[in-house]
Amino acid sequence: MSRLGLRLLTSLFFLSAAVSPVTAQPAAPVSEETVHEVAAQLRCVVCQNLSVDDSPSEMASQMRAIIRDRLAAGERPAEVRQYFVDRYGEWILLSPPRRGFNLLVWLVPLAAVGVGLVTVAVLVRRWTRHLRDHRPTRVDVDPAMSERIRREVDSGP
């Protein structure tokens, strides 16, 4: 784009003085916190990975206004959310609804933590078995290791 083109763009901008539409103010007072709460769960459709709450885009700003209006009209947050799901599909929810197949995304990490903890418990039990067997421990500590421990003990807290 040449500088001339830019200048054209600039002059175009200043020539027209009509007031552009701006977001309407809500009719009834709606808690901004509720608006954020709903908006934060919805995915901004033009920006892929930001929420409607976070996105600085015009579309997101319009969607926030729609959320505000619907809440002002007496809809509950869940209903407003459902309104968007009905139009955009589950995709618009930033966190999949907890039912059916989607439960996996919640349960699998939980199961992973569980498996990890059980594995560690089993290993620690196995590795401390010798303590319960009353066999003498540390029969052959290598000298370098014991030297290291001694140093650690000397200098440590």
């Binding site: 966190s95 989607n102 995304v105």
Partner: peptide, 13 residues
């Protein structure tokens, strides 16, 4: 079905 997994999920877990 296309779903999204975003900030609310990751934060919560």
């Amino acid at each position: 079905v296309k779903v999204s997994v975003g900030a609310p999920f990751f934060n919560q877990v």
